[in-house]
Structure formats: structure tokens, C-alpha cells
Design a protein around this nucleic acid. Structure first.
Length: 422
DNA sequence: TCTGGGGTCCTAGGACCC
DNA sequence: TCTGGGGTCCTAGGACCC
């Protein structure tokens, strides 16, 4: 017995979040920008209609947007994160098995159920809009990959009003797979689509019908699993308890080119401060830090250079000071003075719950002092604002400082920015 | 020093996703 | 002038061991 899987996806999520709190933009084109206000990462339907493409750099579409009286927002992750958890929490009213896949998507196991799949999906959709103001689309099928395809079609023009497409044991599946190009299948990216095309495999249906050993050789197990999922064979299970983080990253493109080693050190130290905060907020510790730096990918002169290196330690730590030592020694390994750098970042990995540090704390007095110190610093910064207390070496005004000139209010997470209704 | 297969562990990099 | 950031998974290849 194959259970029916649903994929629920919030329509134009970031744009919809902005719209919930600002009635004046109900019919206007809306776009939300990436960090640093660099490019477009979310668009309302109206913005799509005037021809704004996903990922377009702001400077290329700015005049188009102003001509159409569009609203432009910097990204407000506090708001989106909060709206997301409202949506996700409500899903448990409909089924116990929910996998939160991303900030705006969740897979649901729809069994067991009292009503028909279609009725259930429509009722989830209506309730979600009523409770949160966020419109959602739902695709239903035997597997995750097929549910993704159903969801995508549920958003298409001719079907958009309904917002639900049920392909579970449906005779429509074959024709829809024949209309779906391989590059539009979840898990098949640009590289894989080129390989498939070279073998004359152009549609999802052809991918499904090709001998699986061939696909495995061409695209490794990842591709083989996708092909099986297209046949309705579950290879990707619902993962409900995937709350454990494996890594934490902070990286930025710089406002200007950096060649100077000291400036690069400043930047990585700033990123390290951010990832350490996040790590301790989740009560985690890390035993490895990866440092990466990169030249400008849009101007690869003379040649692109983007080295990275990892420092792995025996014991995990959550102390800035210790991680700072690891970071600098790693940066030194990859830095080459002959290049101009445009971007850098830090990744913490080997994450373990910080209770597991207890043993070390008994052994190591210096470590225990640092651990307590960091906890105190976090508490103060939480209360009085970011970087109220910091290491003297951490510069907060750098060329990597994030640009956010069009941010909306933190309607749901900051008492001082609540929505006022007159 | 050479001969050989098999196994593990680690890391860098590729590919993909939202 | 201006082109995002944060993740996961898989594999190839090196180092090491028996």
C-alpha cells in the first residue's frame, strides 16, 4: 500500500509575507531582494507578469520596477521565519507526519484520512489562507518527486485558481510527465540536464522509461533515485526529525575588492562572530572550521581562485577564542597575496550538543572559563543588541557590512514594530 | 625494494536545492 | 558604480593500514 504524499508550498512566500502586513500593496508588483540588496529573490505574480526574472540583479530591473510602481523590499528574515513557523505548526492539525523541507515548503503524509485527498487538500489550503493570510499550493502523488511535479502544475496559469493537483493513482500522470522537461524535475540541475540531453533524454517521462542502470552510470545514485521516484517507487522517505544541523555558515561578498591580508582577517573574524552566536543559540559546539575565500566570479581575472581549507580538532568547542585561533591558521594556509578577493566565509561543522562538552569542562579550567564568558556575552548582546559586547579585534564597520535600505518592519518579532491598525 | 588486493578515513570539490 | 546566502549529499582521490 503506497501512501499519498503531499507537497505544500507557499506561493511567492517572501512577497506574500510582505503583503500580509501591508494592504496598500495588494495589487502592486512586489519584489524582495537578496542580502546586500543585490538581486531579486522573490516576486509577486504581478512582478512576474511585468517580466522581472528570478535572480535578476536589481540594477538591471530597477527602472522596469519603478515604471510599474512596484514595491521593493530588502529581505526581512525575522518576519519570514516567524510566518513560516506559523504555517508549519498549523499543518499538524491535518496530519501528524510533516517534514519541513524549507522555509516555505513541507511534505505531508496524508494517510490515514477520513476524507478524499482532494477534499483534504482544499480544506488545508482554505484554512491556511484564513489563519495566516498566506496562499499555498498543494501537489499530491505517490512519491516526493512526483508530488513536486504535481505542485508545480498546481501553480500553472490554467490551474492556479484551484491551487491543488492530485496525481495519486491518476491517469493524468503520464501526460504531465511527457510535458515536463528533465531540467524541471526536482534534483535534476543544469549539469545533469545537459548529460541527459546528450543521451536524448528530454522529458520526465523519458527519464522514467530509461534503464535505471544507465541513469545510475550517468548521474550516480542520486539520479537513479529520482528516476525510480518518477515511476512511483519511494526512494526518498519523509524525514520528520531532521532538526539536527550539520553545519552553520556565514559568508558575504564584499562591497569592494580586498587584497590586504589584515582586512581579510577582519572580515573572517566578523563572520566567525556571527556563526558562533548562531551555534551557541542552538546549544551546539563544533570541532571543525572551514574558511573559504574567493575572487570575483563575474570578473575572473587573471584566473578564478576560490580555495578553502578545514581545520579539524580532537575536541569540539563553542569558544570564540579557540575557534579564532583555528580560523586564522586556516586562512593563512589558503591566502595568496597575488589575488584580489571578493568574498569570504566561515563554516562550522562537526556539530554536537554542547552538553557533550561537560567532560572537557571538568578537565580544562581555561576552557570552562571561556564557555561561561561566551554565555554571558551572548546574554548581554541578546538583551542590548548585536555586538554590544565583543572582542576588541572584531570590527563591526567593514566593507562586508550588509546593505538593507528597504527593509519592512519586524511586525511579528519586535514589540516596537507591531502593525498599528487605525 | 618490489609484488597485490582490500579496507577505512579524511578532504576537496561538484551538484543540487531553496 | 551595482550580480545572495545557507544548506545537504555524493564521489574521487590521497594517505594509511593489513
Amino acid at each position: 500500500m503506497q501512501n499519498a504524499i503531499a507537497l505544500l508550498d507557499c506561493n511567492n512566500f517572501y512577497a506574500s509575507c510582505e503583503r500580509v502586513f501591508d494592504a496598500s500593496v495588494k495589487r502592486k508588483p512586489i519584489v524582495v531582494l537578496s542580502n546586500n540588496d543585490g538581486c531579486v529573490i522573490a516576486r509577486s505574480e504581478e512582478a512576474k507578469e511585468i517580466g522581472v526574472t528570478m535572480g535578476a540583479p536589481l540594477f538591471k530591473v530597477e527602472s522596469l520596477l519603478t515604471d510599474h510602481d512596484a514595491e521593493i523590499y530588502s529581505s526581512n528574515y525575522a518576519l519570514y521565519g516567524d510566518m513560516s513557523s506559523r504555517v508549519m505548526n498549523l499543518l499538524h492539525n491535518f496530519t501528524p507526519e510533516v517534514e519541513i523541507y524549507s522555509i516555505d515548503e513541507a511534505f505531508l503524509n496524508l494517510e490515514p484520512r477520513k476524507h478524499s485527498l482532494d477534499n483534504l487538500a482544499h480544506s488545508i489550503r482554505e484554512k491556511m489562507y484564513q489563519w495566516t493570510g498566506i496562499p499555498v499550493s498543494i501537489g499530491i502523488a505517490e512519491t516526493k518527486v512526483l508530488a513536486k511535479i504535481a505542485n508545480r502544475r498546481a501553480k500553472k496559469d490554467e490551474l492556479r485558481e484551484q491551487g491543488v493537483l492530485n496525481l495519486y493513482r491518476s491517469s493524468k500522470t503520464e501526460s504531465i510527465l511527457k510535458e515536463t522537461l528533465v531540467q524541471d524535475v526536482w534534483g535534476i540541475g543544469y549539469r545533469s540536464s545537459l548529460k541527459l540531453k546528450a543521451s536524448n533524454i528530454l522529458t520526465a517521462w523519458q527519464l522514467r522509461e530509461t534503464d535505471n542502470r544507465f541513469i545510475r552510470r550517468l548521474l550516480t545514485v542520486t539520479g537513479a533515485r529520482i528516476a525510480l521516484e518518477l515511476r512511483g517507487i519511494k526512494c526518498l522517505p519523509l524525514e520528520q526529525s531532521s532538526m539536527k544541523k550539520h553545519s552553520i555558515t556565514c559568508s558575504r561578498s564584499f562591497g569592494q575588492i580586498i587584497t590586504n591580508y589584515e582586512l581579510l582577517k577582519e572580515a573572517t573574524l566578523y563572520f566567525l562572530t556571527r556563526v558562533c552566536e548562531k551555534m551557541r543559540h542552538h546549544n551546539l559546539a563544533a570541532n571543525a572550521v572551514t574558511v573559504f575565500i574567493s575572487t570575483d566570479r563575474f570578473r575572473p581575472v587573471p584566473v578564478p581562485y576560490s580555495p578553502s581549507a578545514t581545520y579539524s580538532a580532537t575536541y569540539p568547542t563553542d569558544s570564540n577564542q579557540e575557534l579564532q585561533e583555528w580560523t586564522f591558521s586556516t586562512l593563512e594556509r589558503i591566502y595568496d597575496k597575488d589575488y584580489e578577493y571578493r568574498k569570504a566565509g566561515i563554516i562550522l561543522s562537526g556539530l554536537v550538543p554542547s552538553e557533550e562538552l561537560t567532560k572537557r569542562m571538568f578537565d580544562d579550567e581555561r576552557f570552562e572559563r571561556q564557555h561561561k564568558l561566551m554565555k554571558a556575552v551572548d546574554a548581554i548582546n541578546q538583551k542590548f543588541g548585536k555586538d554590544t559586547v565583543r572582542f576588541a579585534s572584531v570590527k563591526t564597520e567593514g566593507r562586508w557590512k550588509m546593505k538593507q535600505t528597504r527593509k519592512s518592519q519586524s511586525y511579528t518579532t519586535n514589540w516596537n514594530e507591531l502593525l498599528i491598525v487605525n
